[in-house]
Write a protein that binds this DNA or RNA. Structure first.
Lengths: 217, 217
DNA sequence: TAAAAAAACAGGAAAAACCCTGTGTATTTT
DNA sequence: AAAATACACAGGGTTTTTCCTGTTTTTTTA
């Protein structure tokens, strides 16, 4: 709350036009005020440091450069648990939804949500502490029926980064440079992942990543 | 222009939140007014029919369901050439830019444009009739150096079969065997397709095939 | 804090992918 | 019928990928 008794909001999204537009929309809602915007997680961390009054709600995009939504959420949960975070995304990937909720997000909505629904979500997250849309509850219910998390191979951060870049025209050498690792280390990732997934070559990895939505086209 | 001497604008985008937010932003600009929004091309066609005053500018998203940006632009050029269209997209794919300009768009910008730049674009498209950002001019200049950037590359039967198999773990040698051709012939297909599409390697081809729906996962 | 596990890294080698130039033979165009 | 075009194919070269078997360093765990 600010001194006008308004609920204060921060927007974290690298798409300037969207962020600025969303700011206008939210400011048009009764009782809500956007107090600042950040381009990504690091930017948010920096801006929160220099504030005397923390925002009540953070609208957090998932796909961002530098520091993505997941890591940002993790940091927020650890350092500012009182701030309610609503995750924002382009796609309704259930894994994304569940992961964000697991990390501590209080809600999740798509960017094609109706403005009226966004307003309701903001009101609800203040009044009840969370906003679970039908999509979110569906994701949670479905997760109950899916057991055997062993069947889903897990990848650590570097591996995921490697896989994403393997789905491009970069050579392994170039990937190593981008990751600031030795080509031999990257080759180790490749070898390990191939073995775990039973793959023959890089095309197999690309197809695996796409089929399992590790990477969006 | 409406009776308040404002430049009238229509927004065509299937992302409700973005469209509504953008409306607020544009309405906050001096001399501009969003008069309606549409979700996709068909919706736009329908809404234009029932209007007495056409909008001066249409902000047109490219990625939309039902009727996409390209087809919508084509229809607009044919039926309402006086309306200035600014294309809106998430990515700076040069092919997209060139295709939209070819279809008659007066400008092209990314969704992460700065709000101030958007305002300038709107002013410029009214004053000069077009808005060519640095990105757009770059795309045009680059197109001069590329030999005929085929908007829709065509593939014959063998090439399509090759592409499909290239999206698997088969080696080229194995693909050649399956196609009952010499490995050298298959290598010729590869070489030719790489050149036509400007690809560096097989992963690039896989991504191209999937992006252009030459192959379904 | 010592042992175990995980991560980063290397040398080396075979296979595959990539890329160039060029030939013969159909097929189509003029 | 001659010319242009498209197609199947080769020789031969470089680069990249793939796949071994290791060592060293860092992190985790007992």
């Amino acid at each position: 709350m600010n001194n006008l008794n308004e609920t204060t909001i921060a927007i974290v999204d690298d798409h300037l036009l969207f962020a600025s537009s969303l700011e206008k929309l939210i400011n048009s809602f009764q009782g809500f005020r956007v107090i600042f915007k950040a381009q990504h997680g690091l930017d948010l961390k920096d801006k929160l440091k220099h504030l005397t009054h923390l925002p009540d709600i953070i609208l957090l995009d998932i796909n961002m450069p530098v520091m993505n939504g997941f890591d940002t959420q993790k940091w927020l949960t650890a350092n500012h648990p009182s701030i309610r975070v609503l995750a924002l995304s382009m796609d309704d990937n259930e894994m994304f939804i569940l992961r964000m909720l697991k990390e501590g997000a209080k809600g999740y909505f798509l960017k094609d949500i109706h403005p009226k629904d966004l307003e309701n979500a903001l009101i609800e997250v203040i009044e009840r502490g969370f906003y679970y849309s039908e999509m979110v509850t569906n994701a949670m219910v479905n997760s109950l029926y899916e057991e055997a998390p062993d069947l889903e191979p897990e990848f650590n951060k570097n591996e995921l980064q490697f896989i994403e870049m393997a789905c491009s025209e970069l050579t392994y050498k170039e990937i190593a440079e981008k990751m600031m690792l030795s080509p031999k280390t990257v080759d180790g990732y490749r070898r390990d992942i191939f073995k775990r997934l039973g793959l023959r070559n890089r095309v197999g990895l690309v197809m695996y990543a796409l089929r399992n939505k590790l990477f969006k086209i």
